[in-house]
């Protein structure tokens, strides 16, 4: 069998120069990998699912009620008074709603490793996260997510028209997983937020809105840009502690998106809560 020519002994050194230190890989296939995670069989695939009731995530607020009220009010409203980007919600039941947010392993076109959703199960609003514990689990994770998404007819995202939906579709196509996510059933909260708060706030990034409008303050978060690196390290080491802040980050993103949606759909719009005086005093910590 051809081997590397001894002439090229330098190649290993070349590669090492730019690499992570080699580490032992532990294969994790148990559900106690990540706190609260369970292995579920969804469709034909066994996947890792983390469920948390939204009520537990946001003690003291009632996102369930806000959403129910908002959807109820839609029934009596002139659709023209609803923000254009949100009109797909008109005529829907609140139970049809699923909020979606993705985390990927790098740039555009890179694999997805976490699909975060907020959806209703048995009358309760739940944060459901489907996790690929390594690169090989992406396909199962997507197929399981499609089962969750496919059962619900109204998708809500923050910037999902440009990012999450095409990205999800692309990865499903890559794995040849039939995907039922269509633009027509989709409300993108970013667009309506821009309409509502542009000029009033310094920008309309999710975290700005979260702080200024929803009044949440993140604790123990990890910056978005660092997430792919953390995930690669998690795959390399199998250390579940690394992933906790990432899961947390994903949950907060979906909760904020749902809260913004409730506010934007409400008629008249819910008042913006009094802004906390200093960023150091949390308005409301979540988790």
């Amino acid at each position: 069998m051809p081997r590397l020519d001894p002439v090229h002994s330098g190649i290993a050194r070349l590669l090492r120069g730019e690499a992570l230190a080699p580490r032992a890989v532990s294969r994790r296939r148990s559900q106690d990998l990540v706190d609260g995670a369970v292995l579920e069989t969804i469709g034909r695939h066994g996947v890792c699912v983390i469920r948390r009731p939204v009520r537990e995530l946001l003690p003291g607020t009632d996102l369930e009620r806000d959403l129910r009220d908002a959807f109820a009010s839609l029934a009596t409203r002139d659709p023209q008074s609803v923000y254009p980007g949100l009109r797909a919600a008109v005529g829907r039941r609140v139970e049809d709603l699923v909020v979606l947010d993705l985390e990927t392993t790098g740039f555009w076109g890179c694999p997805i490793f976490l699909v975060g959703m907020i959806l209703w199960e048995a009358g309760e609003l739940i944060s459901v996260q489907v996790l690929a514990r390594d690169y090989a689990e992406e396909k199962a994770m997507l197929a399981a997510s499609v089962s969750f998404l496919g059962a619900r007819s109204l998708l809500a995202t923050f910037n999902g028209k440009s990012y999450d939906v095409p990205c999800f579709r692309e990865r499903c196509q890559y794995h040849r997983v039939p995907s039922a996510v269509h633009d027509t059933d989709h409300v993108d909260v970013l667009h309506a937020s821009r309409r509502r708060w542009k000029g009033e706030l310094k920008d309309c990034r999710l975290q700005t809105l979260e702080w200024e409008v929803v009044g949440l303050h993140r604790v123990g978060d990890v910056p978005s840009a660092e997430i792919p690196g953390v995930y690669h390290e998690f795959v390399a080491t199998g250390d579940p502690g690394l992933l906790q802040p990432v899961l947390h980050h994903g949950r907060v993103d979906t909760v904020t998106t749902a809260s913004l949606l409730a506010r934007l759909l409400a008629d008249p719009p819910l008042p913006i809560p009094r802004r906390p005086r200093k960023k150091t005093t949390p308005a409301k910590d979540i988790d």
Binding site: G106, P111, Y135, P228
Partner: peptide
């Protein structure tokens, strides 16, 4: 060297470089 990682007989790109 951790540039890729082998899972189930396939080597996946395992870092954030392009």
């Amino acid at each position: 060297n951790g540039r890729t990682r082998r899972v189930d007989g396939r080597s996946y790109w395992a870092n954030t470089d392009f």
